[in-house]
Design a protein around this nucleic acid. Structure first.
Lengths: 147, 147
DNA sequence: ACCTTTTTTTAGTCATAGCTAAAATAGAGC
DNA sequence: GCTCTATTTTAGCTATGACTAAAAAAAGGT
């Protein structure tokens, strides 16, 4: 009897990530914090919480605090990790500004698979370590070899 | 009186792209072709076509052939362009296999903004032109400077 | 302890986007 | 021209995920 694992939508991943971050910042997470952070209505949060409970990613009794299950914490860390690698790549390698990098990473973090993520990590690392200088974006010139 | 342009979802962009490609390949596009290419039911195509007509991206009378409006052609080319740049980046720079590259590009093409796309294009170009050799992924070693 | 304010939940609506089944239309063969 | 088949559309259902408004619960101030 294989219980086909309920899939996690981009939307629910966003909620899970927000919960993880609020807990990291404030020590605890209430629905209001999540609503504020994601700029959605409080009722949308309640709705999402039910989805996350159903998937055993959070613990949540009505009107109570929200905590992450072990699995939830694992998945949340993974999403955050993806986000960080992507944002890092955009800023470090492509010399894109913070906001643009963050915005794009927020959407891509739900999409990029393991292989490409692994390559990005390796590529950033390679870029950082290579002794012979790296390319940087120069407005009007494109990528130019560093001095 | 500003007519707020109807937004184009990722889904509709996929349909538009498929229409563009089918026309490019076969000279004309019928609903069946689109359904086959996207692996969706015929009725889902009809539905999407109505959305694209409403946005003035295609011309389509019931039971008739599908053609692109000028705007539709412009948008379709743009999506295809994004797809190609992304897939190219994955294969050329990150040395990822075709299928992985294509799959990820298919999802990212709806997300990536102009700035990052421009940088990717420049980065690929820089990589291609730089005389001092480029990095390539070597299994078990990571990125290694080309000979 | 009680009243007010804030938070959370419930209930009900809407849009997107997929599906199946059935009806309508078009096209091909005879 | 009629009939059979393939295509397309309509109608109706599903799920997700947003919203508002109203009800319920919790928290704070005096």
């Amino acid at each position: 009897m294989s219980t086909t694992a309920l899939e996690l939508s981009a939307s629910l991943e966003d909620y899970l990530e927000a919960i993880y971050q609020v807990i990291a910042e404030r020590g605890e997470a209430r629905a209001k914090d999540i609503a504020d952070r994601l700029s959605v209505a409080a009722s949308s949060v309640t709705n999402a919480l039910q989805g996350l409970v159903k998937r055993d990613l959070i613990n949540h009794e009505p009107y109570d605090l929200i905590t992450l299950t072990n699995e939830g914490e694992r998945v949340a860390r993974d999403v955050v990790h993806r986000h960080e690698v992507l944002a890092n790549f955009f800023t470090e390698v492509l010399s894109v500004d913070e906001k643009t990098a963050t915005d794009c990473a927020c959407k891509m973090e739900h999409i990029v698979g393991d292989v490409i993520l692994e390559r990005l990590i390796a590529y950033i690392e390679y870029n950082r370590q290579s002794g012979n200088g790296n390319a940087t974006w120069v407005e009007g010139k494109g990528f130019v070899q560093d001095a």
